[in-house]
Design a protein around this nucleic acid. Structure first.
Lengths: 195, 195
DNA sequence: CACGAGTGGAACACTGATGTTCCAAAACTG
DNA sequence: CAGTTTTGGAACATCAGTGTTCCACTCGTG
């Protein structure tokens, strides 16, 4: 009855739930202010500051776990998108929709000072998700569905930045659905070959 | 003997130069890590920490001045772009080129925790530059040069995010010129009406 | 219901950044 | 070159965040 499979597994009921609460709260709080204190995170999670330290000894441990958590979510979203299926453009749009659901988590990927934390820890090597996306884009290029003037890296970065902007928009002004529509619409035109 | 005319004026030779050095260094350092210490900024500017305090009493004063400085630069870039002249798309591309030259300064605009600092200080009301850009986009809509599905705010945000991504690319990988080309190419397709 | 796991809060030492003061050295100005 | 301006650095008090320990409380689960 011990999951303990890969890196981060669901602990026994009570602990697992608290851990999640802290991680989720941290994502929300740190997305707004990457310099927020652990006290802020604790408050947002509805737990005591001591409890946070009980789960993550040091601040950097929390940040590292948060990074791993985001990575896991991205991996799951990528998986669900089945990037190998159907037309490349449609697959990219599926991925976009899935990633959009990650919410504040995707904001973290954009934070320089946050990413720097887990940058010097054997990271930076591409994940499976990164590779899958790269393969999709190459396929799109081969199929003539993607603009050949835009290299893989540029399309990846553009995708993320449009997601970021769309998420910010949903946070302040209009509907999330409307924001996603704009994002997809813009992305489609951006990656399609010039007419 | 008191300049103090408008907001930020050029002080007497020596002082003005030091002030600029600090402001420029702050832009570079804070762009990379918004939580950098004043000591870091001082070191990057090649001045003593005391000197920084001499020009900006509190940290928030430096941040505020930095914000004003960026705004000023954006205003100047907008001005140079002459947004009222010629086709809307061409004008937007001119603006894009000018803003790209701002370098690290444009990264600051993207930093949530930085913007938050000067957000609660009577800011947020649109500047002249904001209005000029909004007018340009509306003109583009009227001329049929811009996609009617994209509202003003979305186009503005997209412009800034593409600039951000392009600048990051220039910082790590390829040429600045190459990055700008990709940025312009993508922006053009993104804002043009769907075929 | 009883017992242990899980928790919150107070108290503490410690660290790094901040902001201030003072003074001697350097830089600029006339 | 004399006099003022500007500067760097040392020393200092202060403060907020961090990380630790301890103890009493309250869950939930058997």
């Amino acid at each position: 009855m011990e999951p303990m499979d890969t890196a981060v597994s669901a602990r026994s009921g009570a602990r697992g739930r608290t851990r999640r609460a802290i991680l989720d709260a941290a994502a929300v709080v740190l997305a707004k202010n990457s310099g927020a204190s652990l006290g802020d995170v604790a408050a947002a999670a509805g737990v005591g500051r001591t409890t946070v330290h009980r789960y993550f000894a040091e601040r950097s441990d929390l940040l590292k776990a948060l990074g791993a958590d985001v990575l896991e979510k991205v991996a799951a979203a990528t998986d669900r998108s089945r990037l190998e299926d159907g037309p490349a453009l449609a697959a990219l749009e599926r991925l976009c929709q899935e990633l959009f659901e990650l919410g504040d988590a995707l904001t973290l990927v954009f934070d320089e000072s946050l990413v720097a934390t887990w940058n010097w820890e054997g990271w930076e090597e591409d994940t499976d998700a990164d590779r899958a996306l790269a393969r999709l884009i190459e396929r799109g290029h081969a199929e003539g569905a993607f603009d050949p003037a835009l290299d893989v890296d540029w399309i990846v970065q553009t995708l993320w930045s449009l997601l970021y902007v769309a998420w910010q928009r949903g946070r302040t002004g209009g509907t999330k659905h409307e924001a996603l529509t704009l994002c997809l619409h813009t992305l489609r035109k951006a990656v399609s070959p010039a007419p």
